[in-house]
Design a binder for these strands. Structure first.
Length: 763
DNA sequence: CTTGTGTCTGTTTTT
DNA sequence: CAGACACAAG
C-alpha cells in the first residue's frame, strides 16, 4: 500500500484517497491524470473498500481503456476480472447483449459504423422519395446523431419549421428501419442502454448497487446523453448509488463540434454537490518556457474553471518561431530542424509534426520523403474501414444476421454476379411491400433477377451450413473463398495489397478468439445448446434477470457476434504508438493524450489555426485556443511554431496573416528565428531553404507582383485604422480607381479604395 | 455492368 | 488541386 502511494505528490495523494463521495478532479496536461485514476482504483480495492466487481471505469477511446488496464495489472497482482473498464460504447454493447430481450433487440444485433449509418440514411432517403438536395444525407445524419446525443427520440422533438419536421420524420423512419434490420448506430448504443436502465427499475437498481465507484476519464468530453447515463448509473436523484469520480480538464475540451459539453463539469459540481474539487496543477512533462506559453495563452479564455500549471523543471529552451514565405518554405524549415534534432541525438519517434487539418500534411510529407527521413502519418483509413475488409465483414454480418440491409447491399453484387440496379430496385419494392428485409424479400422475386438473387442467398446459406461447427478463423477463411472475394482481387491488377488485408482478417480472428478467452476451436456460431445457455438468465433476489459481469463474454455473445462488434467498435489501429523510428505526423486532435520531446506546430495562420469556420460559431475561437493549448502541452523539451505567408489551399494561393495566438504568447518565452513576422517576406533576406527547389506558387506570386500598381504590392502587410492589421491579397484598377483586396484576418476580407482608405505600411 | 466524364466540394474525430 | 460522387455512354 505504501508502495502504491509513495510516489504521489500532495494533490495526487489527496485525490487518490478521497472518501467515497462524488469528486471532480481538474487535471491539467501532464499532471498525472491516468496515474491518479488507476491508483485510485487500486487503493480502493487494496484497502478493502470495494471489490473489483464494484468498479466501473469509463473512457472514450479503446486505447485509454487498454492503458488503464495495463497500468492496473502492473500495480497490483489482483485479477482485473470483474472490473468493468471500457469505453462508453463498449460497455453499452455489453449491457445490451446481456439484456437484449429487455432492450428489444435481436441477440445478434449489429453495430453500424459511421459509413454504414450514412449509407443506411441514403437508402432511406431514396426509398422515401425525399429530395436529397434539400435534405443531404450527411445533414440528416448530423441531425439524428445530434438528437440522440442529447437523449432525444423523434417523438420528443418539437420541429420549428417544415424542414425540421421532415428531418424529424426521417429520424423516425430511420429508427424504424434500424429496428427492422436489427442494427444500431453508435449513438443508439448509448441511448438504448439509457432507456433500458431508466425504464427497468430492478435492472437499474441492480447496477446502481453493484457499481459503488464509477470513474470517468476525460470528463470534459462527455455529451449530454453520456452525462445522463452516468447520472442514472450513479443513482443520482434516487438517493444513493455509486460515487462518481470525474477526471477532466476544461482547458482540453476540443470536441464540442461533436456534441461534447464542457458545461457538464459545472453541472456535475452543482448537481452532485461536489465537496471535493481537487486541482492537479503540477506538470511533470514540459519545460518552463513551454508551460509559460501554454498558461499565458489559455488565460485568454473567459469561461474557465481556473487552473495554472507549474513545473519544477527549468525554463529549458525558448519556443522557436519561424515565419516562412510559403508552405513549401515551412516544410523545408521543418526538415532542416528535424535533421538538426536527429543529428543532436533525438529519436525520430520523439519528433512530432502537428497540424490543424489533414490537408496540410501533404507538403510536409513530400519534403520529409525527399529528404529521406522516415515518417508516419496518423489518420486516414483504418483497417476495418478499408473497402475490401468491409466487404468481407458484410458477408460475415449476413451470416450472423441476414436482415442487415446495409451489409446485403454492399455485397449482393460484389464480386459482380449479374445483379444490377434494376433487380435491386424491384427487390426494394418487394421488401417495402411485405415489410421485410431485402434478404427475406428474395423469395418473392421472379424472373432472371430472382434467379441471381436466389443464388446469392444460397451462397450465404450454404456458407452458414458448412461453417456450423467451425471456429471463427476457419469460418473467416471459408467466407473469404466462398464469397469469391479472393478470386476477384487476384484478377485485379492492384489487388495484392487488398488480398494481404483480407488474409490478415484470418489472423485478426485468431488473435481475437485467443484474447477474448473463447476456447480454442469453439464454434463461431452459437449452437442451439449454447444459445439456450446464453439466454439463461441468472436471477437475482429481486427476481430480475441479470448476467453477472464475471460471466465470460461467450455466454453473452457468439464468437462471430463478438468479433463483428469488435470490428465496429475498434476500427483498428490509428493512434500513434511509441517505438516506431519515424517522425510522427498527426492533427492536433489526434495528438491529445500523447507527448513528445520535440514538437512542431505548423500552419499557425489566421483562417487555418484558428480555423476560419471557428469564428462563425459561438465560442469557436475559444475552442481553437484550447486546441492550441493541447498542441503546446504535447511538448516536453523543444517546441517549434511556424507559419507561412502564402499557402496553396484548394488549388488557390492564399495569403494569411500570422495567427492571433502569437499575440497571446509571452514574448520572453519565444525566440523569433526569422525577421519579425510583420516584415513583408520579400524584404527578408532569403534563407537557404527558402530558395530551395520548385517554388511554383512563389513564381505565380512574383508574376503578380510585377503588375504592381499604386505603390502597393500583393502580399504586403498593412494596417488600417478600423480593421487593424491585414495582408494585401489582390490589387485591381489603377490611378484613382485603384483598389486593394485586403485580408484583415478576424476583421474579414475587405476591398478598399486606395485613394480613400488610409493604409499604413507595416514592417 | 464497366468505363469515362463532369460537377462539386472541401475542419477537427471516436465510437 | 484532388477525391468523391453522380450520371451518361459504351
Amino acid at each position: 500500500m505504501q508502495n502504491l502511494l509513495h510516489n504521489l505528490n500532495d494533490e495526487q495523494l489527496a485525490a487518490v484517497t478521497l472518501p467515497a463521495q462524488s469528486a471532480l478532479i481538474l487535471a491539467g496536461a501532464g499532471s498525472g491524470k491516468t496515474r491518479v485514476l488507476t491508483t485510485r482504483i487500486a487503493w480502493l480495492i487494496q484497502t478493502g473498500q470495494v471489490s473489483p466487481s464494484g468498479i466501473l471505469a469509463v473512457t472514450f477511446t479503446n486505447k485509454a481503456a487498454k492503458e488503464m488496464m495495463t497500468r492496473l495489472s502492473a500495480m497490483m497482482p489482483i485479477n482485473t476480472r470483474g472490473m468493468w473498464i471500457g469505453t462508453f460504447h463498449g460497455l453499452c454493447n455489453r449491457l445490451l447483449r446481456t439484456h437484449y430481450r429487455d432492450a428489444a433487440l435481436p441477440q445478434t444485433f449489429q453495430i453500424l459504423d459511421s459509413q454504414d449509418q450514412l449509407s443506411a440514411i441514403k437508402r432511406l432517403i431514396k426509398a422515401n422519395n425525399v429530395d436529397d438536395e434539400k435534405f443531404p444525407p450527411k445533414e440528416v445524419m448530423y441531425f439524428i446523431n445530434g438528437a440522440k446525443d442529447q437523449g432525444l427520440r423523434a417523438d420528443k422533438i418539437e420541429p420549428y419549421n417544415a424542414d425540421e419536421r421532415k428531418k424529424v420524420e426521417l429520424y423516425q423512419l430511420y429508427d424504424d428501419q434500424c429496428q427492422r434490420e436489427g442494427v444500431v448506430d453508435f449513438a443508439e448504443l448509448l441511448l438504448r442502454t439509457y432507456e433500458l436502465l431508466s425504464r427497468n427499475q430492478p435492472l437499474r437498481q441492480h447496477y446502481q448497487q453493484r457499481f459503488q465507484h464509477i470513474l470517468v476519464d476525460e470528463f470534459q468530453d462527455t455529451n449530454d446523453l453520456q452525462y445522463k447515463w452516468l447520472k442514472l448509473l450513479a443513482g443520482h436523484g434516487e438517493g444513493g448509488g455509486g460515487a462518481l469520480f470525474a477526471v477532466g480538464d476544461d482547458d482540453q475540451s476540443i470536441y464540442a463540434f461533436r456534441g461534447a459539453n464542457v458545461g457538464n463539469m459545472i453541472a456535475f459540481e452543482r448537481e452532485f454537490h461536489v465537496k471535493n474539487l481537487i486541482k492537479l496543477e503540477q506538470n511533470y512533462r514540459s519545460h518552463g518556457h513551454i508551460l509559460d506559453a501554454a498558461n499565458v495563452l489559455i488565460a485568454n479564455n473567459s469561461k474557465r474553471l481556473g487552473k495554472n500549471l507549474r513545473t519544477d523543471a527549468g525554463h529549458g529552451e525558448q519556443v522557436r518561431v519561424y515565419e516562412a514565405t510559403s508552405d513549401l518554405g515551412e516544410a523545408q524549415w521543418i526538415i532542416e530542424e528535424t535533421k538538426n534534432l536527429i543529428a543532436d541525438g533525438a529519436a525520430r519517434s520523439e519528433i512530432a509534426v502537428l497540424y490543424r487539418s489533414n490537408a496540410q500534411s501533404r507538403v510536409i510529407e513530400h519534403a520529409l520523403f525527399s529528404a529521406g527521413i522516415p515518417y508516419h502519418v496518423y489518420g486516414g483509413l483504418r483497417y476495418f474501414q478499408r473497402a475490401e475488409v468491409k466487404h468481407l465483414i458484410s458477408y460475415l454480418q449476413l451470416m450472423d444476421n441476414p436482415h442487415n440491409d446495409s451489409a446485403f447491399m454492399r455485397v449482393v453484387n460484389f464480386p459482380t454476379r449479374g445483379i444490377g440496379a434494376r433487380t435491386i430496385e424491384n427487390l426494394q419494392g418487394a421488401s417495402a411491400q411485405y415489410g421485410v428485409s431485402l434478404y427475406a424479400a428474395v423469395p418473392y422475386m421472379t424472373g432472371k433477377g430472382g434467379t441471381s438473387l436466389a443464388g446469392f442467398v444460397k451462397l450465404v446459406e450454404s456458407a452458414r451450413f458448412e461453417s456450423q461447427q467451425m471456429a471463427l478463423p476457419e469460418l473467416v477463411r471459408l467466407v473469404l473463398e466462398a464469397s469469391g472475394l479472393l478470386t476477384h482481387y487476384q484478377t485485379e491488377k492492384e489487388g495484392a495489397d487488398r488480398i494481404e488485408n483480407l488474409e490478415q482478417m484470418v489472423s485478426a480472428a485468431t488473435q481475437f478468439v485467443a484474447e477474448e478467452g473463447y476456447g480454442h476451436g469453439a464454434p463461431a456460431h452459437l449452437g442451439p445448446q449454447s444459445q439456450a445457455q446464453a439466454g439463461a438468465a441468472i436471477v437475482n433476489e429481486d427476481g430480475v434477470e441479470i448476467l453477472d459481469a464475471d460471466a465470460p463474454l461467450a455466454t453473452v455473445m457468439s464468437p462471430l457476434s463478438a468479433f463483428l462488434s469488435h470490428a465496429s467498435l475498434e476500427a483498428g489501429d490509428n493512434q500513434a504508438t511509441a517505438g516506431q523510428q519515424a517522425v510522427q505526423m498527426m492533427t492536433v486532435h489526434s495528438a491529445k493524450g500523447l507527448e513528445f520531446n520535440n514538437v512542431f506546430i505548423t500552419g499557425l495562420e489566421e483562417g487555418l489555426f484558428p480555423h476560419e469556420s471557428s469564428s462563425r460559431e459561438e465560442g469557436g475561437v475559444e475552442e481553437e485556443r484550447r486546441l492550441m493549448y493541447v498542441a503546446i502541452t504535447r511538448a516536453r523539451q523543444r517546441l517549434y511554431l511556424c507559419f507561412a505567408q502564402t499557402r496553396m489551399l484548394h488549388g488557390q494561393t492564399r495569403y494569411n496573416m500570422k495567427s492571433r495566438f502569437f499575440d497571446e504568447l509571452p514574448e520572453d518565452a519565444l525566440k523569433w528565428l526569422s525577421a519579425k513576422a510583420q516584415t513583408h517576406w520579400f524584404a527578408n533576406k532569403k534563407t537557404a531553404w527558402d530558395e530551395a527547389p520548385l517554388i511554383g506558387s512563389d513564381n505565380a506570386i512574383a508574376q503578380k507582383m510585377q503588375q504592381k500598381s499604386s505603390g502597393w504590392r500583393i502580399g504586403e502587410s498593412v494596417s488600417h485604422a478600423k480593421f487593424g492589421e491585414g495582408v494585401i491579397v489582390n490589387l485591381e484598377g489603377s490611378g484613382a480607381n485603384a483598389r486593394a483586396q485586403i485580408n484583415f484576418g478576424s476583421a474579414g476580407m475587405k476591398v478598399l479604395d486606395l485613394s480613400i482608405a488610409k493604409l499604413e505600411r507595416l514592417g
